[in-house]
Amino acid sequence: MVYVKLFLAFLKIGAFSFGGGYAMLPLIEQEIVYINNWLSAYEFVDIIAISQMSPGPIAINAATFVGFKHLDVLGAVVATIGVVLVSFLLVTSLAQILLKYYKSPVVNGVFTGLRPAVIGLMAAACVSLFRTSVEDFKSLIICIAVLVIIHKTRTHPILIILLSGIMGIVVYTI
């Protein structure tokens, strides 16, 4: 059943993504773009852009968007429940214990491995999105221009997005 499939995909995303934010992207991308074909690679990048400009964590936004696109409001709700369920269960059952033992060698060991992995995951997301997004000389120019702007001015991401969108309109119409 489609709802079950949607639910399970987002349950997986909620259960196995560590590090939050951009580090979740490879798993979300794998599940919704490559395995289930719920979004195109372009739509996936657009969702990240929309998430930057709208309230809420990206995992929730992706779940809602994908669920709604394919199965309307009920789909959005089902996917969102899927992505938060494991968090909810873990927090209400395990968190108090973890609060006491998070300095234990086992937890410490696992996170010694996960911390650098998170950077690798984000770098992988970056390369994958680069392949989708930078397809001609003009988009490469925008990519580099934005890098320079962020590096020099620390402009807020929302402004960066608006600015790059305007660059897109200008660069592709002239």
Partner: peptide, 14 residues
């Protein structure tokens, strides 16, 4: 076109 411009910027942000 707006989104065409935004996509490479997302790469830079990440």
């Amino acid at each position: 076109l707006f989104f065409k411009g935004v996509r490479p910027a997302i790469v830079s942000l990440i």
